[in-house]
Design a protein around this nucleic acid. Structure first.
Length: 458
DNA sequence: AAAAAAC
């Protein structure tokens, strides 16, 4: 199939400019297949491999239908985790960068409602969020959907699965009948296709052949339950991936594995539902920055998260649902990059391997662990993440803060790796050997007459 | 079992 440039579509020049700045060249197959029907106003079911640009596809689709001059909520995206909602919001903001004054609000739980209420006072053009908090705002009458044109269910099979179905449906009830409804995911069980008939109108069904993880080498290892943690340490010590996301079945397991690995000298972060949201956000920033190379998580991290250049996915335990396995593995090998996936299973979980084989029509590569496992070889990180607190939003926006800091403190500029900004905070990744010096300079720096709080978050 | 509103 020949790849086409975005310019072959009748996209708004502001969007084409953003696409150019973001460095997107041609459309990916899922983008090329879903954008034309979306631009014509059709409902769409878009199934495409993990890491193939589905967010940009529906992001461009919904932004194309927004009238910036109309201060009403015209598009809404629902996601299954808070971290994913944040990421989707960042991506849409980046695409909307050259559109005039597009307002986007993130409506997720785990944080105070008050700032969200303020953001809803003048209706945002776009809302990205989680079903629960969105429903609260709808019930309170603070979020109004009378002018909604586009509703997106990201990870649609999850949003319409048993856990979220009722909430998703309740939200759809609040939306106008005349709307465009878009479903996107890498996986669509038949049951969800059935639900589409109730929520969508004559959807165009697009399936881009699922070579999810084509660039990922997968290997399965059988292990006795009592050797599981040793096997994990062995795999880490043996492969020493630049970064590794380790999946556990339960929060308890995730907490245990995190603690055990720490005890053995590994630098590890944890991400799961028992951790406070603020901490979860920081953990993800630190991991993405490379200030720890191992992240132990539950399936909260299984879907959608785009962690740049993630080298390895490791299943400490396999999920029961083979689709969930597809999503986990899809955290690596994104956008044509390569990756490895290593999976541990006990004899009694062998059936899960079979299910994966049947479901994905693959032959699992099963390898034996050596009788003698390798000694622990921890993987120290060579960067540190600094958090710069920019104070109140109305005083200084993240962009200004960043510009001010890099100008003022020259050393930062050369030392900075990745940068992530949230509402009032900016995170810098800095090489460890430079960190102390930079930290000192930043602490002394006054920008626009104000002092900033700077702290390492490691 | 996980996630998720919130308490």
């Amino acid at each position: 199939m020949s790849r086409q440039p975005f310019s072959s579509l009748s996209l708004n020049p502001a969007l084409l400019q953003a696409i150019d700045v973001l460095g997107f060249k041609q459309m990916t197959p899922i983008q090329a297949a879903t954008l034309p029907p979306m631009l014509e106003g059709h409902d769409v079911i878009g199934q495409g491999p993990t890491g193939s640009g589905k967010t940009a596809a529906y992001g461009l689709g919904l932004l194309s239908r927004i009238d910036p001059a109309l201060s009403r909520t015209q598009a809404m995206v629902l996601c299954p985790t808070r971290e994913l909602a944040d990421q989707v919001a960042r991506e849409i903001r980046a695409l909307a960068r050259f559109m005039p004054n597009i307002k986007l609000s993130i409506l997720s739980g785990g944080i105070a409602k008050r700032p969200q209420l303020a953001s809803l006072e003048h209706d945002p053009h776009i809302v990205v969020g989680m079903a629960g908090r969105v429903l609260e705002h709808l019930d309170d009458g603070m979020l109004k959907l009378a002018d909604l044109k586009v509703l997106v269910l990201d990870e649609a099979d999850r949003m319409l699965g048993a856990d979220f179905e009722a909430e998703s449906r309740a939200i759809v009830e609040h939306a106008p009948k005349a709307r465009q409804t878009l479903f996107f995911s890498a996986t669509f069980p038949d049951a969800v296709r059935g639900l589409s008939r109730q929520l969508q109108k004559k959807p165009k069904e697009i399936v881009v052949a699922g070579d999810s993880g084509a660039q990922v080498t997968q290997t399965f290892f059988e292990v006795a339950p009592e050797r599981r943690i040793d096997a994990l340490a062995h795999l880490l010590s043996r492969h020493r991936p630049e970064s590794a996301l380790v999946f556990c079945f339960t929060r308890n397991d995730a907490r245990d594995v995190e603690a055990q690995l720490k005890k053995r000298g590994f630098e590890v972060l944890g991400l799961h539902g028992d951790i406070e949201q603020r901490e979860r956000d920081e953990v993800l920033v630190r991991f993405a920055n490379g200030s720890a190379r191992v992240l132990v998580a539950t399936d909260v991290a299984a879907r959608g998260l785009d962690i740049k250049d993630l080298a390895a996915v490791i299943s400490y335990e396999l999920p029961e649902d083979p689709d969930q396995h597809v999503h986990r593995v899809g955290r690596t090998g994104r956008a044509g990059k390569s990756g490895i996936a290593l999976h541990l299973y006990t004899p009694r979980e062998h059936e899960r391997v079979r299910d994966i084989e049947d479901h994905l029509q693959i032959r699992a590569d099963i390898e034996k662990l050596p009788a003698t496992l390798l000694p622990d070889r921890p993987m120290p990180a060579n960067v540190v993440t600094l958090c710069v607190d920019g104070g109140r939003r109305d005083k200084l926006r993240p962009g200004d803060l960043l510009g001010a800091l890099t100008n003022e403190v020259g050393v930062v500029k050369e030392a900075v790796g990745k940068i992530t900004s949230f509402d009032t905070r900016t995170y810098f990744a800095i090489e460890k050997k430079l960190a102390e010096r930079v930290l000192k300079r930043l602490r002394e720096a006054k920008i626009k007459g104000r002092k900033f709080r700077v702290r390492p978050i490691d």
